[in-house]
Every structure is written in C-alpha cells, then in structure tokens.
Design a binder for these strands. Structure first.
Lengths: 166, 166
DNA sequence: GTCATAATGACAGTCGACTGTCAATTAAAC
DNA sequence: GTTTAATTGACAGTCGACTGTCATTATGAC
C-alpha cells in the first residue's frame, strides 16, 4: 500500500492533534489550579451543573462517556475537598446522589469567567470560519473512526471548556 | 467579556480535538495490540529506530518531549518483554544504552505496514488540502499556547503514527 | 587538580484513564 | 411471586503521564 498524499496529510494532522491536545490539557489545568480543581474534577462538577439536578456516579459516567469507575475516583476526591456531598437516593438504596456544595457553585462561576476570557484571547484574529471548518473535519474523522471501529477508550476527553455551552 | 463568535467556534473545535484524540489513541493501541505493543512502547522503539543508534533513557525522553521518568518506566517494560536490551555505555557509567532487539525491528516493520493501510483508509475521500489546512490551524493554536504559556505537560502526545516519516 | 554544577537512573508518590470482579440491589421476564 | 438479568458501588490491578528527591557520575570553571 503506497502512501497517498492524503494519507501523509492525515498523519501530519494527527500529530498536530496529539500535540495540541496535550497543550490544551495543560492550559485547562493551569486555568483552574488556583481554585483547587483539575480538568477531570471540573468536568464532573460541570456535568452535574448541566443536568440541573443531582446524579449518581454511574449517571455521570454515562453523560461524560467515561467508565463509572473513573468517575467514582474523582467523586471521592471531590467529596474529600468539600465540593460535593453524597446524599441518600430515594430511588436506589446503593446509588447515592452527588450533590454540589456552595463551594462548588462559586468555583464553577469563577471558572466560567476565566474560561471565556481565555478562549477569547486564544481565538483572537482567527476567523470563525476556519475554526468551524476544522472542527467539521475533525468531527468527520471521529465519525469514520467510530463507524468502522469499535468503542472508544473514552467517548470524549473533553476537559476544560464549556461546562454548559457544549 | 462577551463571548465572540470566534470564541465559540474555538470552544467547539477544542471539544472535537479532545474527542478525536481519545479515539485516535484507542485506534493506535488496537492497531498494535496483536504485536504486544502499546502506543507508548511503540513510540520509544520508534525514537531509537529513527535515531539510527542506541540512546540512553534520558536522550529518548528529550527527543520525545517526555520526562525521562516516564520513558524509564516504558523501557523497563520493553526490556521485560524482550524488545530491547540495556548495554554498557562507554561514555557514561550509569546511563546504559537502550538497544533494539531483532524482535523489536520486525515489530516495527509490521506496524509500519499496518499503519500505512490504516491511515490510507481513514483518509480516503478527504482532500489533502483540507487536511493540511486543518493541521496548519492546529499548529497555529499550539504556537499561541506555547508562546504565551509555559511548558506543556507533554510536548507532544504523538502516538501511533509514523515512526520515521514525521 | 579540585570543586561546584548539571545530568542521570532509580525510587516513591500523584493524577487520570482503563479493565475485571464481587456482592448488593433493582428491574424485567415469566 | 420467583427467578433471571442488568445496574451499581466498591475494590484491586494495569497503563501512561507527571513531580520530587536521592546518590552517582560527568562536565565545566577556576
């Protein structure tokens, strides 16, 4: 199988994705470090906030495309840090509900402002059209991968950005 | 700070990057699972192969943009699995050289063929121009992030693709 | 040549993802 | 109403990245 032009271009693109992904993760962590949050922790809080009600660990996992075991670990950390409490679930004796504390709500508000400023600065001077076109291409690639392939290790590795927007 | 159009478009793009990154990692791992390799292991072998000589653990780390401790861990695994041997380094009493075994060389050859077929199939029907344009945009974003920001968690998370090409 | 500094491997520990397994619980089938 | 299947939390273990620290070894300055 000879390498086509497209194949080469795709390989380059993939390398850029890996590189940028790493930098974005780092940037996200730095953005909320002062608040005592990490990307993973923030994602969990965001999922609950977005749902507008309390959720069980397994529900959060499904919404985020993660294994429930991964979420469990993060939830344990968040409870220890006072961002959430675990309350009785009338619908399920074992599956307690993860509830945001006031500390979590104010942290989320804080992050939202910081993230808006950050993404605005990073996007400055770039045309919305180019950004959208690139996003569309990546979306296509994801579809091709998931269509032919099997389940992914993680449905998404979304981190820092947009707890609500999406 | 009001959210601009660009800011929104960027946020969408970022989410696509996280998603696709996860899928690509999975695909890469699946691609070389039959050979007993993982993305991280393959990367280390690829770095040595590309250098065309034996390298110390720290040298590999620098070339891959990883902490030498991460490489050390992988190298230990690779030695246990018979993909590499650690040989005396005339230039440094402690820093032994990581040397590829025949097993590693044949595995690398195998992966190269499989990866070519895989990326060819994934790229089919996509224009090289679109791919290149997107790669350029991501490259710009990486530059903006690294210019203003500090060091990244990992200079690159390259995995599966192109041990040699690059 | 000696001495301070940098590089190196090794070790311990953190973080975030995963898989697999188990017992308890809920829900569904019959 | 029982029995079976699916869901759930908890626990143990793997993998890949990170940081920090230590003693050893090279290297450079003087």
């Amino acid at each position: 199988m000879p390498r086509t032009h497209e194949s080469h271009a795709l390989t380059d693109l993939i390398l850029e994705i890996f590189r940028l992904n790493g930098h974005l993760l780092t940037a996200g962590d730095q953005l909320m470090e002062p608040l005592g949050l990490t990307s993973a922790r923030w994602q969990v809080l965001g999922a609950i906030d977005l749902a507008d009600r309390s959720l069980s660990v397994a529900q959060i996992g499904r919404r985020m495309g993660l294994a429930r075991q991964s979420v469990q670990r993060t939830v344990n950390d968040l409870e220890r840090l006072g961002f959430i409490t675990l309350e009785a679930n009338p619908d399920h004796a074992r599956a307690r509900l993860v509830v945001l504390t006031e500390k979590a709500r104010s942290a989320l508000k804080e992050v939202d402002g910081v993230q808006a400023a950050w993404s605005g600065a990073l996007a400055e001077g770039l045309s919305a059209e180019r950004l959208t076109e690139a996003a569309g291409l990546l979306h296509d690639l994801t579809e091709r991968l998931t269509a032919s392939g099997g389940r992914a290790r993680s449905a998404s590795k979304p981190i820092s950005m947009t707890p609500k927007g999406n």
